[in-house]
């Protein structure tokens, strides 16, 4: 919270921006084994501070919800079998600090960027079977490379289109969770 506050307050005096975007996320690896469905539920907020002409540092907070209903199936382990309908949920909340490098083209109206974020994914995976819920909660170290483009829409407002790849690292509780997100959003800046 302190970091968030300092970046935002910093934004009042220095050059800063706030980006809100809508992500569509595609599960990969262990996450896609568990939930194969694309997620249309999520939100991404970024607070960035312009450090140099083409360089931002900032924070990202996101929330991605993956969900899938599994029709009635028999799950067998050893001699035990359980059958029922499963509702599977994975909530991922990335908390990341990152840098972004912009390349100015078309006189600043069109700015492709590349960035790298570092931080954690808070993962809450729960499986509902019958009246019972099995929950697995964990924090995973995460890297998040991203690519995108800013399209200037007016003074202080730009459209953002980007791709982020969240790569969580496995913990004792859960294998590394990873997914791609395609983000569409708006950036508001005081520059």
């Amino acid at each position: 919270m302190f970091l968030l506050a300092s970046v935002s307050i910093g934004g009042l005096y220095a050059q800063g921006s706030f980006t809100a975007s809508y992500p569509i996320s595609f599960p990969m690896g262990d996450l896609s084994d568990y939930i194969g469905q694309t997620s249309f539920r999520g939100v991404t907020m970024e607070f960035n501070k312009r450090q140099k002409k083409n360089l931002d540092i900032g924070l990202e907070f996101s929330w991605h919800t993956f969900y899938e209903r599994q029709d009635k199936k028999v799950y067998t382990e050893g001699t035990a079998s359980v059958s029922g309908i499963q509702y599977r949920y994975t909530n991922s909340m990335p908390l990341l600090a990152g840098v972004k490098y912009y390349k100015e083209t078309d006189g600043g109206n069109f700015m492709p960027y590349a960035g790298l974020g570092l931080g954690t994914l808070y993962i809450n995976r729960s499986t509902d079977l019958g009246m019972y819920r099995i929950t697995n909660e964990t924090w995973q170290f995460a890297l998040r490379p991203e690519l995108g483009v800013l399209i200037k829409a007016g003074p202080g407002v730009s459209g953002v289109l980007g791709v982020k790849y969240y790569a969580g690292f496995g913990t004792d509780d859960l294998d590394g969770q990873s997914y791609f997100s395609v983000n569409l959003g708006l950036m508001f800046s005081n520059f």
């Binding site: 001699t79 079998s81 059958s83």
Partner: peptide, 12 residues
């Protein structure tokens, strides 16, 4: 019905 589960186990 969506909350119904059936558990079975046996002596192998």
């Amino acid at each position: 019905e969506e909350l119904d589960i059936v558990y079975t186990n046996y002596n192998p």
